[in-house]
């Protein structure tokens, strides 16, 4: 693997978000990105919650962060240290599981993560660059517009919403949404603003269990959204084995 040190202009950046303690999915995406020449990695938060292996995922993120990868805090990561917004019963069970299985060092790492990172014309954030601490969902073109305005960058990459989506500045100055076709490279010229929801590595919800992540080629100005098949059955089995609610295993297995 090759890494570009922080600060240097990476050519091809892999964007991974909402990993949710799913090591199988994360490993599959990292291998996929590596095969496609990713030189830098940005982890956009929610490393824990829902899944069986918070400790395994956080270890991988720590390793990449030590070599210059961007790593941000998500609402589930924050919930490990303190209550962060509303969590339902099953989600709370998974947070308890993370609290129980993460080491103190891993918890300190999560607590130390920033909510936003910038690199020149690119902005990274877990939820929305407009008040990231409120964990607002970018669920409409107007929410994407607020995010782009606050980010003050040509390219903003977000997670939090689990479905891949590309918002772009349209001819009348507002934002429009585009549902990307997995694997198709989309030209994204830098004289307009783009907000990409990169998709969820560990818990996709569009009835397709394949892991989701995104590659940004900065030199060619292209974004490619990917879906990566992995052993979702095995990830679901681990969830069952560690005694987490059955519904969490089903979600991973079916992508719901």
């Amino acid at each position: 693997m090759h890494y570009t040190p922080a600060g240097a202009r990476a050519l091809r950046i892999a964007l991974l978000s909402d990993i949710h303690a799913n090591t199988q999915a994360l490993t599959a995406c990292l291998r996929h990105a590596d095969e496609r020449g990713a030189q830098q990695f940005a982890f956009l938060g929610d490393f824990v919650g829902y899944g069986a292996d918070p400790s395994g995922v956080v270890d991988i993120v720590i390793r990449y962060a030590a070599k210059g990868a961007v790593a941000l805090k998500g609402n589930h990561d924050q919930a490990v240290e303190k209550s962060a917004g509303y969590f339902n019963e099953t989600a709370m069970a998974a947070i308890e599981w993370a609290r129980k299985t993460l080491s103190d060092e891993q918890k300190r790492f999560l607590a130390s993560l920033p909510l936003v990172a910038r690199d020149g014309t690119v902005c990274f954030v877990h939820a929305s660059a407009a008040s990231p601490e409120r964990w607002d969902y970018i669920d409409s073109p107007s929410a994407a517009k607020r995010c782009a305005d606050a980010a003050n960058a040509f390219y903003t990459f977000c997670g939090h919403v689990h479905d891949q989506l590309l918002y772009f500045e349209n001819a009348s100055g507002g934002m429009s949404e585009f549902r990307p076709v997995p694997g198709a490279a989309i030209p994204v010229r830098s004289q307009r603003r783009w907000v990409a929801i990169v998709g969820s590595v560990g818990q996709p919800r569009d009835r397709n269990p394949a892991a989701a992540y995104t590659l940004f080629d900065r030199t060619r100005e292209q974004i490619t959204f990917y879906r990566v098949p992995y052993d979702a059955m095995a990830a679901a089995d681990r969830i069952r084995k560690c005694g987490l609610p059955e519904s969490l295993a089903c979600r991973v297995e079916l992508g719901i």
Binding site: F168, S172, G174, S176, A184
Partner: peptide, 13 residues
């Protein structure tokens, strides 16, 4: 193009 966003979407022109 079916794989690209439509930059003329919601164009007032």
């Amino acid at each position: 193009h079916a794989h690209y966003p439509d930059l003329l979407a919601e164009s007032k022109d």
